[in-house]
Amino acid sequence: MSVPASSEVDPQLQERLRSVDPVVFDIVLLSFASVIVFSALGLRPGSRLVPLVIGIPTVIALVAQTALDIFRFRHPVQEASVTGHDPLDLGFARLGEVVSAAVREEAEDTVLPTGEEARRRQLLFALWAVGLGVLATLTTFYLAAPIGLFAILLAVGRSPIKALLVTGGVLAFLYLTFDLLLNVPF
């Protein structure tokens, strides 16, 4: 079985591995788990028992993961060399190999598109979603939904008339479904 040489590693992959994103995400999870564990210490014994039994190993695992990701950040090439995998002949594979192939398939299915344009659009969408949520919280969805939808459709290059038509259609659908059919005003 051949293992790809370090020098042949895809530069994009190297760049991704160099990214600090995994470390940041590990720290977010670690912070949450640590806050829960720390808060649990002030509870009564019966209340804190299970949270501590679960929380302490979780914190340890996340500390280890953070350390591992920091190591990967500093030594991306060595890690990259083990990520390559050979195509699998499903007719002659062992169950363990099929499980790995299925796991890879599940993981690859949700990988987000990369590239500058895709990233720009992801950022735009993330900011828009937050804006919509905040606007809906401050006003109502009756106001926030059409404004938000119309704005994002314009931002992605739809003409004002098309954006207006789509927004109107969605609003009518929401009113019919929630207000009239399900009797759940929003």
Partner: peptide, 20 residues
Amino acid sequence: MRGDVLAPIITVIALIGVYA
């Protein structure tokens, strides 16, 4: 269907569903 039209529509419907 364009993803950049569909995704905001689904998101609005989902968030209203959560709120309602």
